[in-house]
Design a protein around this nucleic acid. Structure first.
Lengths: 236, 236
DNA sequence: AAAGTTAACTTGTATATACATGTTTATAAG
DNA sequence: CTTATAAACATGTATATACAAGTTAACTTT
C-alpha cells in the first residue's frame, strides 16, 4: 500500500480515537517526517487529504489544527453503501428486496444510464428498515454490460461489496442531486410513510474509474428520517 | 498568484468554454509542462484539483479525461453566497431584508455559535425572491466579535462580499446539515409557500481560516424550488 | 518596562530526479 | 495473419532541495 495513504489512515484513526483532541495541533510536518521515517512531501500528501476531508485545518506558520469531527454525524456525501453506513453507525437495519429483474430500458432510463433503447438493465428495488420502520426505498438500475449477474442474496447483503470484491469493478465517482417529490404509489405501498406528504429523493449517477456510467439510483427517504451532513471548503 | 492555481483556473475556463469537450483527453502532463513552461509537479497539482472538483478523471497510463460538467447544474455544495449563485446562474433574483438587529444569544444560539449566553450577535433575516416568488428565507447569525458593523445596504447587496473584501475575513470551511422541517410561522408569513407543508432547511456553521466559528445560518427553501447538486468520489 | 529585532520554526510553492505501473503502438517471430 | 515482445508514453509515488512567507519566542535596545 502507498505510504501517504497508510499515514493518512493512521492519522484518521488517531484523531477519531481522540489521541489528538479537537483544537489541538498535530505534530509539525518535520516531526511527522521523522516519526514515519519518510519525506516531507509524503507527509504533506497525507495532511492535505486530512484537510480535504475535514479532519484538520492547516494554518501557515502555525501547524495543523484538529477540527471538530462530530463522530455521530455521518457524512452522507461521498459514495457510501447502505450496509457500510448502517455498520459504521451501528444501526439496527434490515433490507427487504421487493423486486429483482432484468428489464428493457425505456426512454427515461436510456438517458439516465446513457445507453440504447431496450438495452438490458438490472432493476433492484429494496426497502430499508431502520428500527423496524421502512423509511428508505432504494431503486437501483445497473447497466447489464457491467453487471451480468445478480442474485437475491447479493441484494439482501450488499451489492457494492459484490461489485467491488467479486466483479472487481472500480467504482470511482458520482453525480448526485437531492430534490423533494410527492410520494409515488410505490412509495406509499412499500414504505411506512405515516402520512408524510413528501419524500426526499437522492438521484445518483455512478461512474467507474474509466468514466463509464454503470449505475443510476434513486434513494427515496421519508423526510423526518432524512439527514444529509456535509463538509465544504470555500473555493480559492 | 500561484502558478498551479493560475493553471487550474485557466483549464477550468477552457473546459467550460468547451475547448476540451466531454470525454476527450487533456494534453498529457508532459505536454502541459511544456505549454505552461513549468514543472510536472506543478501541473499535477492543478490536475488533481480539477479531478477533486469533478472536471476530469485521471486514468493511469491513459491521461486526463474531461467528464461531463452540466453547466446548468449549479453545485450547491461548497460555500457560495446567494449573490454569487444568482450571478453565475443569471437568475432574476432579489433580496428583501426583513430584519437586521443585534440580539443577545439564547441557549440555542450559544451552542450553534459556540459563544457565551447573552453575547452579542448580529441577526439578519432575508427573503430571496426568484422570478418574483419569495422561495428562500435566509436567517444568518454572526458573532459580533468578528463582524462589528452591518448595514441594511450591505445585507441587500452581499454580506460575504463585505466580509471578505472590506473586513478581510478569511472564510475557510463549513459544516452543513440538510433536513426537512414543518414551516414555522415566520416561514409562512415571509415566504410564498403556496400551501407546501414542508421546508428544506440547510443549517451551516461557517468557520474562518484560524478555525474560529463566526457564522450560523439557516437557509429555508420551499421544497419545489430546492435542488442540491453534488459531485462525490468513492474514498480509497 | 516597552518596543523593536532577530532567530527559529511553521506551512506553502516550485523544481528536479528516479523509479513503479498501466496503456498503446510498433516491431518481430511464428 | 496472429501472437508475442519491446519500446514509447501515460500517470503514480517517493525523495530531495531551495526558497517564500507567516508565527512565535527569545533577545536586544531604548
Amino acid at each position: 500500500m502507498q505510504k501517504y495513504l497508510t499515514i493518512y489512515h493512521e492519522l484518521v484513526r488517531q484523531i477519531q480515537s481522540n489521541q489528538w483532541p479537537e483544537s489541538t495541533k498535530l505534530p509539525s510536518e518535520n516531526e511527522l517526517t521523522e516519526i514515519y521515517a519518510t519525506s516531507r512531501e509524503t507527509i504533506r500528501k497525507a495532511l492535505n487529504q486530512l484537510a480535504q476531508d475535514g479532519y484538520i485545518q492547516k494554518i501557515r506558520g502555525k501547524g495543523s489544527v484538529v477540527i471538530d469531527t462530530n463522530k455521530f454525524d455521518f457524512p452522507v456525501s461521498g459514495i457510501v453503501s447502505f450496509k457500510e453506513l448502517a455498520t459504521s453507525l451501528q444501526l439496527p437495519a434490515n433490507t427487504i428486496v421487493n423486486e429483482l429483474a432484468i428489464i428493457e430500458a425505456d426512454q427515461e432510463l436510456q438517458s439516465k444510464l446513457n445507453i440504447n433503447l431496450r438495452d438490458s438493465v438490472w432493476k433492484v428495488v429494496r426497502a430499508r428498515e431502520i428500527s423496524g420502520e421502512k423509511v428508505i426505498l432504494d431503486k437501483d438500475y445497473f447497466n447489464k454490460d457491467f453487471v451480468p449477474e445478480l442474485t437475491r442474496e447479493i441484494c439482501e447483503d450488499s451489492i457494492y461489496d459484490y461489485l467491488e470484491n467479486q466483479l472487481e469493478l472500480k467504482i470511482s465517482f458520482a453525480r448526485k442531486e437531492i430534490v423533494v417529490e410527492e410520494p409515488s404509489e410505490e412509495d406509499r405501498s412499500l414504505l411506512d410513510l405515516e402520512g408524510y406528504s413528501n419524500v426526499v429523493v437522492i438521484k445518483s449517477m455512478v461512474y467507474l474509474e474509466d468514466t463509464s456510467l454503470f449505475q443510476y439510483t434513486e434513494s427515496r427517504h421519508r423526510p423526518d428520517k432524512f439527514r444529509f451532513v456535509d463538509f465544504a471548503r470555500r473555493v480559492k
